[in-house]
Design a protein around this nucleic acid. Structure first.
Length: 549
DNA sequence: TCGCTTT
């Protein structure tokens, strides 16, 4: 490897135009150049210093740490306000927690500090270390080993606060930013609470599945399932990723009764409930990941049906998300019993680690040229691109290919299960340089390498924005998010700009001077710029206020 | 609003 190659890589960029930068691309293919279609070497195949998927940009780092500090200052200011406004009969507790940085990269990336706020009665003390958790709640040596084996050496903020709450059998509403370890924060307590696999005959847990974990997309359910397998290693836990195929095996009662944990999407589970092949009467732990999505209008009827089917008197419920708008939070808290609410960081705010920017592209037709310009400059693969519809995702992926960009993948829910699985698998292996996808990839997906997110089409809610850009900057790494906006995106622009400002970054001044969106902003951000609609929204807002009085 | 997800 030449000095030039090192410099290219350490700058964090690989040129995209394969012909123009043929030599650079070939440098990545050392030892694999026999195959034309081979993608660049990556991960363990590269010496650490040349691994551009892991390389932290030195120059940018300092600036980001500074912005984290600034942000912390801003947070405590706001926090004081919040606390003084809180209700009297609730215990308020406010402490600093240290979030785990990526174990992969401990030497490079500083640990991120997040403020943690808890609200509720008798909040259990947080656990600073997994050892403290073990001593207090009798974690098996097995589980401890699986944690360390998989690189979990220190609990993140949500893990050290959330796990004790769940282990005390309490209901929980947890809000923690993207990429801060929410999955482990509920899976670990679940495994501890279940004590032993039902198949091991060490428990008298009764028959039938005891824990259900629900997620909005198949890909996310699959990812959660993979995390389950990491913690289950070496014991006879039966964890099932629910699908049509696994559901069919449930007609056999003997099989059905030996299941410990089911990970599923809601509709799949409801289908099995309705066919009578599954009983949830022994479920003790019910967990909703991406809770605000799960409690929206489309999923809520299914969720209600599942909750109603969990008839055991001691069922513990917990909801998790990076965003929880007021209406979703109300539904969640109504569903929970004497809940504790934990907020890590500032609610509905992206991580300061993600460098966000807005790019003006006059109209839809200007987007592709802008994107191609973007790719003609150094950038950090892999890149995740979001579009608003399935056909737009497919055609953009095609356009990029036609323009000589290689290793482009596409993923949307209109594709077959196998196509979807293949696309995720290529992404996991680092074989995709560019993935074009729809909202289906926006939530929960943890592709550790993603360095840049591009919102090719403007997100229509702040929640969507926060989740989309949260595909980068995970586990303490830095990331970059670029959002294209056109003239027609005006109504949404200010809300997104506010999110960017809230996370301690700047936006062009003229955007901050745009007129305020309607008063319904909290519920449905953006709205429309047609004045009659704004007026209508105002009217509704006023009527609601009158009703309350 | 519409499009996104879920069989």
């Amino acid at each position: 490897m030449s000095i030039e190659a090192f410099q290219l890589l350490s700058r964090g960029g690989v040129q995209f135009n394969k012909n123009k930068y043929k030599k650079d691309v070939e440098l990545f293919n050392v030892g694999k150049s026999e195959s034309k279609s081979k993608r660049p070497a990556q991960g363990s195949e590269l010496p650490a210093a040349l691994d551009f998927f892991k390389y932290a940009q030195g120059a940018e780092r300092k600036r980001k740490i500074d912005s984290v500090k600034r942000d912390e200052g801003g947070r405590s200011e706001k926090k004081r306000k919040k606390v003084s406004e809180s209700e009297g009969n609730m215990d308020e507790d406010e402490e600093e927690a240290t979030a785990k940085s990526d174990t992969h990269n401990n030497s490079v990336i500083p640990r991120q500090r997040h403020r943690v706020t808890t609200k509720g009665s008798n909040v259990p003390e947080c656990a600073e270390t997994f050892e403290a958790l073990r001593d207090r709640y009798q974690l098996s040596s097995h589980l401890m080993l699986n944690l360390s084996k998989n690189g979990y050496s220190y609990p993140t903020g949500i893990q050290s606060y959330g796990a004790p709450i769940l282990l005390q059998g309490r209901d929980l509403a947890a809000i923690s930013p993207t990429g801060t370890g929410k999955t482990i924060s509920y899976l670990l307590p679940t495994f501890v609470s279940l004590r032993a696999p039902v198949a091991s005959a060490e428990t008298d847990a009764g028959l039938g599945v005891r824990a259900i974990i629900l997620a909005p997309t198949r890909e996310l359910a699959h990812q959660i399932y993979n995390e389950c397998l990491k913690l289950a290693q070496g014991r006879k836990w039966r964890v099932v990723l629910f699908s049509k195929a696994t559901a069919n095996t449930f007609s056999d009662k003997a099989v059905r009764d030996k299941i410990d944990i089911i990970v599923s999407t809601p509709l799949r589970l409801v289908a099995s409930l309705q066919s009578g092949s599954l009983s949830l009467s022994n479920v003790r732990h019910l967990i909703f990941d991406e809770a605000d999505r799960m409690l929206d209008n489309e999923f809520l009827p299914q969720i209600e049906e599942i909750v109603a089917a969990c008839t055991h008197p001691d069922v513990q419920k917990a909801v998790f998300s990076a965003t929880l708008p007021a209406n979703a939070e109300k539904i969640a808290l109504d569903m929970l019993r004497d809940p504790i609410r934990v907020v890590v960081g500032l609610k509905d705010t992206p991580l300061p680690l993600i460098a966000q920017s807005l790019t003006y592209v006059a109209d839809d037709g200007s987007k592709l040229p802008s994107l191609l310009t973007y790719f003609s400059q150094p950038y950090n693969p892999p890149v995740l691109i979001f579009t608003s519809t399935q056909p737009r995702a497919s055609s953009l992926a095609e356009e990029l290919l036609l323009n000589g960009i290689s290793n482009v993948d596409c993923l949307h829910a209109g594709m077959s299960t196998k196509e979807r699985q293949d696309a995720v698998s290529r992404m996991r292996k680092g074989e995709s340089w560019v993935m074009v996808s729809t909202e289906v990839m926006a939530r929960g997906m943890d592709f550790k390498g993603v360095r840049e997110v591009i919102n090719y089409d403007f997100p229509t809610t702040v929640q969507s924005y926060i989740h989309r850009i949260g595909r980068t900057g995970r586990a303490g790494r830095s990331g970059k998010a670029v959002t294209f906006f056109t003239d027609t995106d005006g109504p949404y622009l200010k809300s997104i700009a506010n999110v960017i400002l809230q996370s301690g970054q700047s936006v062009p001044e003229w955007i901050t001077k745009l007129p305020k969106p309607s008063k319904m902003k909290r519920k449905q951000m953006g709205k429309t710029k047609r004045p009659e609609m704004v007026n209508a929204a105002r009217k509704i807002g006023r009527n609601d206020a009158i009703k309350k009085r």
